[in-house]
């Protein structure tokens, strides 16, 4: 395997992290809620899709259905779990969302059982593709393309649209946003649901890299939070950079130093967070 494909693997992995985490960074930045439950939505998406594909639903349809379910769950959770938290302190937020994660894990395992869920890829994604000088798994190319497309769409949608302008106003200055007639509650709910839907989608398309197991929502929680923290809370571009960098660091470390990979990864995270406590690209409001 050449160095180039290892880096490519890392980028594909980073894209999965990005797809799942981008919703987290927006919700944590926008609502200023410490959200330790984001992994639950990715897990919900993954489980739903696994069951659907197992029942014969085509992969793409299952993926979008799963995203829808995760998004709807997110909208519901925003009302029931998150709204009571907006006025509370960080500790209450951390505890509540942590508790919610536990409950989701218990519920999913009660419904779907405690075995690892497999989500077979459709045929057109499981083959190899010629990328000029060698063959490369189509699935990973798909991840990279999908991640890039999503980043582009978010960039257009958040940096360039009216919705984005409102969102940014609400992030930077919630009181001002209310004053100029933005319905902050609706905006919060929509954005939160959107972020959760993306997490659900990420849980599906990333299931080959982040296996769907009962502790999924806790096991990868640190990973998603770290992407947000390293990127800068509230900054989706920062999350993109952080997700790709961490994906590449982790993959390269696993390949060259398999025995020390985990230390290297968390060591890198610690170093990055200590070096830049507000992340690589702090949101304007955090400066």
């Amino acid at each position: 395997m050449s160095e180039f494909t290892i880096v490519l693997d890392g980028i594909a992995y980073g894209m999965v992290l990005f797809i799942i985490s981008v919703g987290l960074t927006v919700t944590m930045g926008l609502m200023r809620v410490v959200n330790l439950a984001h992994g639950s939505f990715a897990m919900i998406g993954g489980y739903v899709a696994a069951v659907a594909v197992g029942a014969g639903v085509p992969f793409i349809a299952a993926a979008f259905g799963a995203a829808l379910v995760a998004g709807l769950t997110g909208a519901l959770a925003e009302v029931l779990v998150y709204r009571p938290l907006y006025r509370k302190g960080e500790l209450a937020q951390a505890l509540m969302t942590f508790g919610f994660t536990f409950v989701v894990i218990a519920a999913l395992t009660a419904i779907f059982g405690t075995s690892i869920k497999t989500l077979p890829l459709p045929e057109y994604m499981s083959g190899l593709v010629d990328i000029g000088f060698r063959m490369y798994p189509a699935y990973r190319l798909f991840l990279i393309a999908f991640g890039l497309a999503l980043a582009l769409a978010l960039w257009l949608g958040i940096d360039r649209s009216l919705y984005g302008a409102r969102l940014r106003t609400a992030v930077d200055n919630p009181r001002m946003a209310g004053a100029v007639g933005i319905n902050v509650n609706r905006l919060f709910q929509l954005t939160f649901a959107g972020g959760c839907a993306l997490a659900g989608l990420g849980g599906v398309v990333g299931s080959a890299l982040l296996p769907l197991e009962p502790y999924y929502a806790l096991r990868y929680l640190v990973l998603f939070l770290v992407v947000v923290g390293v990127g800068g809370v509230g900054n989706f571009k920062g999350s993109f950079v952080a997700a790709i960098s961490l994906g590449v660091i982790d993959t390269v470390a696993k390949y060259f130093l398999p025995s020390a990979a985990a230390y290297l990864f968390y060591g890198a995270v610690l170093a990055l967070l200590l070096w830049r406590p507000d992340g690589l690209m702090p949101a304007r409001s955090a400066q």
């Binding site: 779990v81 009571p84 938290l85 509370k88 209450a92 505890l95 509540m96 942590f98 508790g99 919610f100 994660t101 536990f102 409950v103 989701v104 894990i105 218990a106 519920a107 395992t109 009660a110 405690t114 009962p214």
Partner: peptide
């Protein structure tokens, strides 16, 4: 263990609320 997680999670949420 999963029922146990439910208990811990629900208690955490209940205390906060």
């Amino acid at each position: 263990p999963f029922r146990w997680m439910f208990v811990i999670g629900a208690l955490l949420m209940a205390v906060v609320l």
